[in-house]
Every structure is written in C-alpha cells, then in structure tokens.
Amino acid sequence: MVAGSIRLEFSGTPDGFRSAFEALIAETRVRRRVELVFEEIVANIVRHAAPAGAPAQVAVAVDVDDGGITLTFDDDGVPFDPTALAEPVPAKTLDGAPIGGLGVGMVRRLARQVEYRRTGESRNRLVVTLPPSGIASPVR
C-alpha cells in the first residue's frame, strides 16, 4: 500500500470508483474491504438520506497512509447518523435471521473508528478509518 488520496463526487449510484481504488490500493483483500465500506455506506445514503425526489449528492475522499485508510463521506441528504443504529445481534438460526440491516455492522467490524457529524452546511459527514491491514474487530 502506498500513501495517496482520491476524491470522488457523484449523484445517485457511483460509477468508476473501482478503478480509482485499484490505482490507490494494490492488495486485493484490503481493497475489497474498502469497497465493502464504500458499498454499505453509499447504499445507506441512497436508502435513508436522499432528499425526497432527488438523489443525494455524495462526495467521498479516500486517504491512505501508513497508519491506515480513511474514507470521508459527505452528502447533502437529510440528517442520518448510521452510528446511532443498533448493531444487529448475529442470528443463530435461519428462522431468527433478520432480512437486512447487516451493512452498518459490517462497517463497524472492519473499522477502527467511525465518526458522524452534521456539518454547519447541513451536510452529513461520516469518517470511517480502517487499519492498514486486518480487521479492526475480530469475528464474533
């Protein structure tokens, strides 16, 4: 992994982000974790934070250095704090398995830190920091 940064801006569904990640993060397994965080957070923004009648405008910054990988998601949607969601309890049986709601839990498992704030410009800002390799929280 080399130090570097990328900036992505899109409306609705992102496109072309994978090639940007490939240019920044050579290790496939680490890149897949970044893609997973990206997928889960953007899907949440699209589902929960998009203003009525219009796709949310989303800007994502990815910064890589020796200390880890930081993804900063900035959108103009309605206030939505994914860190306030209850973490689902892992199901023991198919009957008891919830349908959905797993994405934020995955992000928390991968991340060393997840921080949310509503900015003074009425935007949601979510900062997710991943360790340079490995998973922050072991599988439970």
Partner: peptide
C-alpha cells in the same frame, strides 16, 4: 477469500 471474509463477519454459516 474476500467474500468468505464478509460471510464470516456476519456468521452467515450459522444460518445458511
């Protein structure tokens, strides 16, 4: 491997 890791994070094998 990356997909297996995702499944392990949610203990998918205990339900599927």
């Amino acid at each position: 491997p990356a997909v297996a890791e995702t499944f392990e994070m949610v203990a998918l094998d205990s339900i599927i």
